[in-house]
Amino acid sequence: MSAPQFMRVRADMPPGHVRTPAYLRGKTGWVERRLGPFPNPESLAYGLEGQALPLLRVRFTMAEVWGADTSHPDDTIDAEIYAHWLEPAEAPHAP
C-alpha cells in the first residue's frame, strides 16, 4: 500500500450546474480510487461537449467535514469529485 494521496476540494462557489457538494468544498480527504475519464457535466448540462476529465473518489473523515466534536469523528464520507475541483494537499492536522 502506498501512502494516501491527500486532496483539497476547491472552495469556489460558482453559479450554475456543478456536481461538487458545497459541504465538501474547502475540505481535505484522500483518494480512495481513480475513475474516468468522464465528460464534464458542467458543460453537458448546457448542451455543450464535455471535456473528458479524471474522476476521483475522495474519502473524508466526519471530523474533517463537520469538526472534531462530531459524534463519530472516524466515520467517513466518500464522494466522486472531478479533477478540476481538486488540488494536492497536506494531510489535515490532527485536532
Binding site: 450554475g16 450546474h17 457535466p41 453537458l44 448540462a45 448546457y46 448542451g47 464535455g50
Partner: peptide
C-alpha cells in the same frame, strides 16, 4: 437530444 445533466440543470 439532451443529457441527464441537462435534466438536473433545469430542475435546479
Amino acid at each position: 437530444h439532451f443529457t441527464v445533466d441537462g435534466l438536473r440543470r433545469v430542475l435546479e
